[in-house]
Structures are given as structure tokens and as C-alpha cells.
């Protein structure tokens, strides 16, 4: 940085008639004030007051917070948490596989394939998830023995355990929603892309996997992420068919000790932890698939997460 330092250029604001009215800071080009927001402050204060009151009443209520704290790392609760995570991961993998297959079938030019895919979505999106779980769980009532040609046969109760019923039910249900998401994302890719790939002599399969799906991905990840978070919570329905995941374990405990609300709050806490972790994972996957359109749009929440993480990394480094 050699060379003579030059004086900063003249920055004085010079508007005739104003000079007498405002302070020196303004004339030096500084200190323009924000518009006051009295209503915003008032509303904010009211909301905070409401929240304080809510928290206060729960703190005063008939809840033994000490007991609740004790259950957070309870062995049975952690077992339930592990089962919740396992069933969520497995059924979202199966759901994505089913969804992809049925989305492609739905878009295929084969009328039988596309009708079957339509039927699948119609049935499994059109009936309650809990009902579907109950039907899978009680399959033994109609088919006492399951037999697959060339594979063999088994007693239905042995095959359709509560775990299997939950896995099948949750996967098939999620698959129906994911199929629609994938179909929508594929249709949203500009038709010129398919046309260009086709004109180059790419096969339909290559067009789908190399051109269309990669472009559908950025739109797909948020919705599949939401599906997975939905599954995380939806897996609690499995408690009703005797699969003792997180909620099921909590119920088993409070049937014995009657600390109902304490345990339900512990369960809520673990669900929040799990969904938060899932959201962070989703953020990274989204970022990976957004490479070719980096720095386009980031929501405030995205910036918050990425900011928090870069700060964390900065501290550990």
C-alpha cells in the first residue's frame, strides 16, 4: 500500500433549506433512520406474553418434569426410538422404489401399465393410512396361508408380523404419494429436453435417467424429504398394530406407571429431534442436487441452517 494517501472526497449533503433543520450527522451523509413500527412491537409483545403464560401454566401443571427428564434416556424409550428410525428408513427406501416404478408405469405409453399405476395411487392415497395398516396386519383372517408359486408357502401370521405389516403398509402408502410427486416432477421438466435427447438417439431409458430425472431431482428432493418426515411421524400409527416403536413403548410404560403426559412429552421431544436431524440431512441433499443452479434462490430458513453449520464448522476447526 504505497503512495500518498488521498483525502476522501467531499461527502457533505448540500440541500438548501435543510441544513438548519437536521443534525450534523445527516449532513455528513450518515444516520438515516428506519421507519418506526409501533404496531409491530405491540403485536410482538402480546405474542411473547401469550407464550410466557402458556409455558408458565405447563410448568405449574400436574406434570412431574423431573420424571419426564428421567424417561428421556430410558432404555425402552431408546429401543422404541431405534425401531421408529429403522421402520422409517426402510419404508422410505421401499416407498421411493415403489414410487419410481409406479410413476414410470403411469407415464408409460402402455395403457395397462398406466391404468394399474393409476389404480395403485387411487386406492392407497384414497384410504386412511391407519386403515391400511390394520388390513395388512389382519391379513391372516382372509389368507391363513400365504403361498407364492415356486417359492413355497408359509402361515400368514408367521410372515406378517407387526413389523412386516407396518413396513408393508407404510411403504405402499408412502409409495403412492411419492409416485405422484415423481410423476409431477418428471412432467415439470420441459418437453424440449426429452425431445433433444430423443433426437440425439438416446434410448427412452437413457433419456429418463440421464436427462429427465436429474432435472426432476431438485424439485423432488423437498417433497421426498417431506414424505420421509411424514413417515417418521406416521410410523407412530404402527403402535396400534402392536409394533412397539417410540410411541408404542411410551404407551407400554405409562399403562404401568400412569405418567401419561410425562411420557408423551418425552416422545414429542424425540420426534422433534429426529425430524430436525432429517431436515438438516434434507438440506444437504438438496444442496447437492442444486449444484448446477447454485446461488439462485435460498430461502431464509436455508440460509439460517447453512449459516449455523458454517459457524459450527468454524468453531471445531
Amino acid at each position: 500500500m504505497a503512495g500518498p494517501s488521498t483525502a476522501p472526497p467531499e461527502t457533505k449533503v448540500d440541500v438548501p433549506g435543510l441544513t438548519e433543520l437536521v443534525d450534523a450527522d445527516v449532513l455528513a451523509g450518515r444516520k438515516l433512520h428506519k421507519r418506526p413500527h409501533p404496531v409491530r412491537w405491540l403485536v410482538g409483545a402480546l405474542i411473547v406474553a401469550g407464550l410466557v403464560w402458556l409455558v408458565h401454566s405447563f410448568a405449574q401443571g400436574q406434570i412431574r418434569w423431573g420424571d419426564a427428564r428421567g424417561f428421556v434416556f430410558n432404555h425402552d424409550i431408546l429401543t422404541g426410538l431405534r425401531r421408529t428410525i429403522v421402520i422409517t428408513v426402510l419404508s422410505s427406501i421401499c416407498g421411493i422404489a415403489l414410487g419410481t416404478v409406479f410413476a414410470v408405469m403411469r407415464l408409460s405409453s402402455n395403457p395397462v401399465a398406466s391404468s394399474v399405476a393409476w389404480l395403485y395411487v387411487w386406492i392407497f392415497r384414497g384410504t386412511p393410512e391407519l386403515l391400511q395398516l390394520l388390513i395388512w396386519f389382519n391379513l391372516a383372517l382372509v389368507f391363513p396361508v400365504l403361498s407364492i408359486p415356486l417359492v413355497g408357502s408359509q402361515r400368514t401370521i408367521d410372515v406378517i408380523t407387526p413389523f412386516m405389516a407396518a413396513l408393508i403398509g407404510l411403504s405402499i402408502n408412502a409409495g403412492a404419494y411419492i409416485a405422484e410427486n415423481i410423476r409431477g416432477a418428471i412432467l415439470a421438466v420441459e418437453s424440449g429436453q426429452t425431445e433433444a435427447a430423443t433426437a440425439l438417439g438416446l434410448s427412452r431409458r437413457a433419456t429418463l435417467t440421464k436427462v429427465v430425472l436429474p432435472q426432476a431431482m431438485p424439485a423432488l428432493i423437498p417433497s421426498i424429504g417431506n414424505q420421509t418426515i411424514g413417515l417418521l411421524k406416521g410410523s407412530s400409527l404402527a403402535a396400534t398394530i402392536a409394533y412397539t416403536e417410540l410411541l408404542g413403548q411410551a404407551q407400554r410404560i405409562y399403562f404401568l406407571n400412569a405418567r401419561v403426559m410425562e411420557l408423551l412429552f418425552v416422545v414429542a421431544l424425540w420426534y422433534l429431534v429426529a425430524t430436525s436431524v432429517a431436515s438438516v440431512l434434507q438440506y444437504y441433499v438438496e444442496r447437492y442436487y442444486g449444484r448446477s443452479e447454485r446461488n439462485q434462490r435460498t430461502s431464509a430458513a436455508d440460509r439460517l441452517i447453512s449459516g449455523a453449520f458454517s459457524r459450527l464448522r468454524g468453531q471445531t476447526a
Binding site: 433426437a199 438416446l202 440421464k210 436427462v211 436429474p214 443452479e293
Partner: peptide, 29 residues
């Protein structure tokens, strides 16, 4: 598909594959 490979086509709206770089666009087919 084989026949289309001997007929190249250039479109009004370019239809460049936006998820690939220029080089990858050309190398893909």
C-alpha cells in the same frame, strides 16, 4: 434410435441440458 443418431437436430430454444456443463452436454450422447 440408431437412425436418429445419423440425423442431428438443432432447436429454436436450444434445449441445452441445464444440469450438465457444455462439455458434458456434448459428450453425453
Amino acid at each position: 434410435e440408431r437412425q436418429r443418431r445419423s440425423v442431428g437436430m438443432v432447436f429454436q430454444r436450444f434445449n441445452i441440458f441445464p444440469h450438465l456443463t457444455a462439455l458434458e452436454n456434448v459428450a453425453l450422447a
